[in-house]
Write a protein that binds this DNA or RNA. Structure first.
Length: 277
DNA sequence: GTAGTCAACTAGAAGG
DNA sequence: CCTTCTAGTTGACTAC
């Protein structure tokens, strides 16, 4: 989008309006450089994570132990809940209160390892005992989610189920990932829009300065040569963009700046923000 | 120590 | 009423 287009829209940015959602996906393909950096960081992170927690995996992989399978339980209960009409949220709470275990996977050299860890989804009374731990999605999980997000920024229940199965995540985790991803996308778009507005503002400020200067010049010209004063005021107007004097009755302007030239003479801070600068 | 990132959470609105 | 969404927040973790 050209800067001039932004400016000509009256600077009105309907951020994240529904009709923009589709466009967002195209606008916000991850910056390759940033993506590289992120990958690098994630690799580092993964390596460290593996080193840090690998020793825990065997004991954590044991599954139900004293806690049963919260993930499966939650998912199964979620499925059942759809039938019975019970809220998923409550089901997760119930599942979590039954067992403080959730699963995540960590890949090591392409090998997917299923682990169980202390759940981040605790009931209030459990929270004190074991505070939530940070779950990091693996590179593969993130990649699959990203791919899916590129196709659809929102999830259908079926897609959610499919992804959760494919990635060994709870449907809720997939859902949350998409929510956060949309939020990040929107934030990024807002930043881009802010930059555009900033540039637009700078341009308009410059234009305003130029016009002020021009006005001063014209005033001094008027004092020096009062020729124009002798003509009826209503017949003369100054076109601020093409820097020439023209007749107000003559609508056939040939200036390339037709927008400015056709409605040039009334500036206010509403439709010309720079005038307020 | 602190700023940044991100998964997970909550509250409230919208839509069915 | 339930589900799903956004906006804002929290807390774990990392990099500097």
């Amino acid at each position: 989008m050209a800067l001039s287009e932004v400016c000509n829209t009256g600077l009105a940015l309907a951020l994240a309006s529904h009709h923009e959602k589709a466009a967002e996906n195209h606008l916000l393909q991850p910056d390759p450089q940033e993506e590289k950096k992120r990958k690098k960081d994630k690799d580092k992170e993964k390596e460290k994570f593996s080193l840090k927690y690998d020793h825990l995996f065997p004991s954590l992989t044991l599954g139900p132990s004293d806690g049963t399978y919260t993930d499966q339980l939650a998912s199964e209960m979620e499925e059942a809940g759809k039938v019975s009409g019970e809220s998923v949220h409550n089901l997760h709470k119930r599942a979590s209160s039954l067992s403080a275990v959730s699963s995540f996977s960590n890949s090591s050299e392409g090998e997917e390892v299923e682990v169980e860890k202390v759940s981040s989804r605790m009931s209030n009374e459990d929270e004190e005992a074991s505070p939530r731990k940070k779950l990091r999605l693996t590179k593969e999980q993130s990649a699959v989610l990203e791919d899916s997000f590129k196709e659809h920024a929102t999830l259908s229940p079926k897609q959610k189920q499919d992804l959760s199965r494919q990635l060994s995540l709870r449907p809720r985790q997939v859902e949350v990932w998409f929510q956060n991803r949309r939020a990040r996308t929107k934030l990024k778009q807002t930043e881009v829009d802010c930059e555009l507005l900033k540039k637009c503002c700078e341009t308009l400020t410059e234009e305003n300065k130029r016009l002020q200067k021009e006005l001063q010049e014209l005033k001094s010209l008027k004092l020096a040569a009062p020729f124009y004063m002798q003509l009826p005021a209503a017949t003369l107007t100054m076109c601020p963009s093409c820097e020439r004097i023209c007749n107000a009755g003559d609508g056939s302007s040939t200036t390339p700046f037709s927008i400015v030239a056709t409605k040039p003479h009334f500036y206010n801070s509403f439709n010309h923000p720079s005038a307020a600068c």
